[in-house]
Simulated assay, not measured.
Amino acid sequence: MKLGKITAFALTTALGTTSVFAAGDEDRTGWPESFTVGTASQGGTYFAYGSGWANLVADELGITGGGEVTGGPMQNMALVHTGEAQFGMTTMGPAAESLAGTNPIAPGLQMTNACAMFPMYQTPFSVTALASSGIESIADIPDGARIGFGPAGSTSDTYFPRMMEELGVKFERRNGGWSDLGGQLQDGLLDVIAFAAGVPVPAVSQLEVQTDVNIIEFTEEEQAKIMEAFPVSAFEIKADTYTTLEAPARSVSMWNFTIANCDLPESFVYAVVDTVMSDNERMQGIHRAAASTLPENWDKNKVMMWHPGAAKWFVENAGADIPADKIFSK
């Protein structure tokens, strides 16, 4: 099943390695010659974060691999389930829908061959408008506002329109890549962009360099209403995330996990997890959102079965208590 993959494959080859797994002493039986990581559109956190750790793993393990532009979490679940991509990235909401067979890409298909690999970070839901618009709160968004929600089928597009409806906002829905929507906001073609992405969102950071923006927080009442209706948690966007912010911004968030095709060799996935999780400072050099890519956050997976190689790493290195019935087996 081809899912319209966009050719933006950031391939790398190993020039030198420092990882124990690169020494070639471990059993590499069944390891693929190359791998892909399904990310999302360019200009978003998934693409920067995913391409970064893909290149890191390729360098450390001495195999070819890279990040690929996709439609985001829903498509990544499908790509990994079918094996068209070895790895991907998803949020817990789309993962749950995919496992239940309600992924809009393939309705009725329970995507149970996509397994949890390692925790990434929380995805905050944030709203941005031009300062010149006068929109400073959710209540200020006028009826019929043109709102860009990100790529069709993304976490943002799946949940943010529902959240806006829950808060009584009436809008015209627009979709597109993060960078494209940021450009449309700057050009006056959109009134608001509502992004669910790890912060700082590159497209928003670029916007505030070029023009004055308002990063709009939820009120306490709005935050509570959304948390009651959707699988999200309270979150604060730190003031130093964007130059525009003078104080933390109240938001909500959803956890992100990387996923692996469940049929990949245990030793391969163990080596990938070890490479990513063993040096958080190096991961933060890829993207600041990786500050939450920590072993102790293994327990944030409440939805997916664990890949055996990933489960083994977290049990051995993070003291994880993962029940046997939560680990994938044939």
Rank of each mutant, 00 (worst) to 15 (best):
G198E: 04
V204K: 00
S179W: 09
E266Y: 04
L15D: 13
S267N: 15
M283D: 04
N175G: 12
A114L: 02
G150H: 08
T155D: 04
F235Q: 04
E166R: 08
A8M: 11
R250S: 07
D27M: 12
Y121G: 08
G43C: 13
A129D: 09
C115I: 08
L185H: 03
E221T: 04
P248A: 10
H307F: 08
V276K: 12
D191L: 08
L167A: 15
I147D: 02
E316H: 02
I215K: 00
H307R: 06
N301M: 03
S251T: 02
G62L: 04
S34T: 05
T293I: 07
M163I: 13
R174E: 14
G83C: 15
D240S: 11
V269R: 05
V213Q: 04
G88V: 03
Q184Y: 00
T45E: 09
G52S: 06
T102L: 02
W31L: 04
T7G: 10
M305G: 07
V272H: 00
M304L: 10
E236K: 09
P124T: 06
G71R: 01
Q206A: 13
E208W: 06
A290R: 03
A40E: 05
F230S: 05
Q184G: 01
E316W: 01
E217H: 00
L61Y: 05
P124G: 03
P323H: 13
A320H: 04
T90H: 12
L294M: 12
N55Y: 02
E97S: 06
D274A: 05
G50P: 03
G30S: 09
M227S: 07
D143M: 10
P231A: 10
S98Q: 06
E84V: 09
I327G: 04
K170D: 15
F268Y: 14
P323N: 13
E60G: 11
G24F: 03
E217Q: 01
W178N: 09
A196L: 01
A48V: 15
W306A: 00
G177L: 14
L190S: 02
R146T: 03
S51W: 13
S133L: 03
N103V: 13
L181E: 14
Y46W: 05
E221H: 01
R173W: 12
T17I: 02
E68K: 13
G71F: 00
I286F: 07
L264P: 10
I322E: 10
S34C: 14
F314Q: 12
F118W: 10
W255T: 07
S156I: 12
D27E: 11
Q210I: 15
S329L: 09
I147V: 03
S41A: 07
P73Q: 10
G44E: 06
L185E: 04
D279V: 08
P94D: 06
A22T: 15
E165Y: 08
M227L: 08
R250Y: 00
N214E: 12
P124D: 04
A247E: 07
S292L: 12
V199D: 06
G309P: 05
N261S: 05
D321F: 13
E208L: 11
